[in-house]
Design a protein around this nucleic acid. Structure first.
Length: 408
DNA sequence: TCTGGGGTCCTAGGACCC
DNA sequence: TCTGGGGTCCTAGGACCC
């Protein structure tokens, strides 16, 4: 069987865009971000600079490092444009994967299609992109990592295991820092060593699900298909706060802003949810979550904010020694597939704690609808809750947040 | 002057029902 | 009355991915 699955990955994406926009940055070590590195150019990576690293640490590693602000709208535009190039070949596109099995009669063998995609992205967008081609998603993904930077790797179906087994386990799907460390403890560094380990031992070491999954991935027996229409199961928002007192005057406005972000997305897609989860991170980065599942789904901003605030108060009451918070998050899950107008009414609170009178409920529903409409016409910033107080403290622009949002 | 933001999946214990 | 088992839902925490 021919390898027909492509995985395309833009190299050091944000950093490459910055070097595209400003030729003076080309060939130089740059980092996108400030307090934390969101992306580093290959020149910076050579010094050990990595995404997610505190800016200060990055500067220590690479004294000449240039920080750039971040053109988030351009990342969005160019990322979409790259996916669009894949779309020109096949409708079977799932994130950065594409299955070209059905279009080789039009465009030639997969390797040729991959080469064309790379040429076009370079010519039309000015960006380097690496592509892996294989029979399975997992192998294609690994091949694209091996192809970096700016390369193409096609995995011959006859030598799949030979290709896979020489590589480090860290390249596998599902192997992050924790699993990698656990495997290292029993002497496993390569995918080949993992493959030769008894699956019972893996299950005991990593749990039944992870053990089973890694064993099947290591033997390339993971027939996962491309999914073109996945729906989200949750929607959330979070905000890092630095170090702030754990007081209502601080967390109240933040929660209102987060609730607004989440609830307006739920309303836009008519997908209210039943479970509200908050996450509170303390000064020492220890995080605690607390959740509540309602009888009825909700998508009203004020309702979500009130429930979230109750949950946060519960967390703080249970951790009386914590006086400082460093992050707050709200997530809504158990999303309903469809929402009639009825369900939008905030009558969902199951218990006696706070059931808003129906007049108040209707008024709030009207307020949400009015805000949604104004934003549709004039943009997100035109009107909102508590946004003014937050503007100065926000560590990351909303444009960056929107980049990470998935379609609900 | 230590660590961004939006998601998914897995695990494990307890409640509750049959 | 005591004991056993399975299924489902909820909650909390952790690991991982993009």
């Amino acid at each position: 069987m021919e390898p027909t699955i492509l995985h395309a990955d833009l190299d050091a994406f944000y950093a490459s865009v910055e070097q595209l926009l400003d030729p003076a940055l080309r060939g130089k070590p740059i980092a996108v971000g400030g307090g934390v590195v969101l992306a580093a150019s290959y020149e910076a990576r050579a010094f050990g600079v990595r995404g997610g690293m505190p800016g200060r640490r990055a500067r220590e590693l690479c004294p000449g490092l240039i920080f750039v602000g971040g053109h988030f709208a351009d990342y969005q535009r160019l990322g979409d444009a790259a996916i669009k190039v894949l779309d020109d070949f096949t409708p079977l596109v799932d994130e950065a994967f594409a299955d070209v099995a059905g279009c080789t009669h039009l465009f030639g063998p997969p390797a040729e299609i991959a080469a064309t995609v790379r040429r076009r992205v370079r010519a039309e967008l000015g960006l380097p992109i690496s592509i892996g081609v294989a029979r399975t998603k997992h192998l294609a993904k690994i091949a694209s990592q091996v192809a970096k930077p700016d390369g193409l790797v096609v995995v011959d179906p006859n030598t799949e295991l030979a290709f896979l087994h020489d590589l480090p386990v860290g390249l596998m799907w599902g192997v992050g820092p924790a699993t990698k460390a656990r495997l290292a403890e029993i002497g496993i560094e390569t995918i080949g060593q993992l493959a030769k380990t008894h699956s019972g031992a893996l299950r005991r070491l990593l749990g039944p699900a992870t053990g089973e999954k890694l064993a099947s991935l290591a033997w390339n027996r993971d027939p996962r298909k491309l999914e073109t229409h996945r729906r989200s199961h949750s929607a959330g928002a979070q905000s890092a706060l630095g170090r702030r007192p754990a007081e209502a005057r601080i967390f109240g406005p933040v929660l209102l802003h987060l609730a607004d972000r989440v609830a307006s997305r739920l309303r836009a897609k008519s997908r209210p949810g039943r479970t509200v989860t908050v996450r509170v991170r303390f000064a020492d980065l220890r995080a605690v979550t607390r959740s509540l599942t309602l009888d009825q789904p909700i998508s009203a901003t004020a309702m979500l904010a009130e429930i979230a605030e109750e949950l946060v108060r519960g967390v703080l009451a249970a951790n009386p020694r914590e006086k400082t918070i460093s992050l707050l998050a709200i997530s809504v899950s158990q999303l309903e597939e469809s929402a009639e107008l009825q369900l939008e009414l905030p009558l969902g609170l199951a218990d006696e704690k706070q059931r808003p009178g129906s007049r108040q409920g209707l008024a709030r529903f009207g307020a949400d609808r009015a805000i949604d409409k104004i934003r549709q016409r004039f943009g997100r910033e035109a009107v909102g809750y508590g946004a003014v107080a937050l503007e100065a403290r926000r560590s990351v622009p909303d444009a960056f947040r929107e980049l990470a949002e998935k379609e609900l």
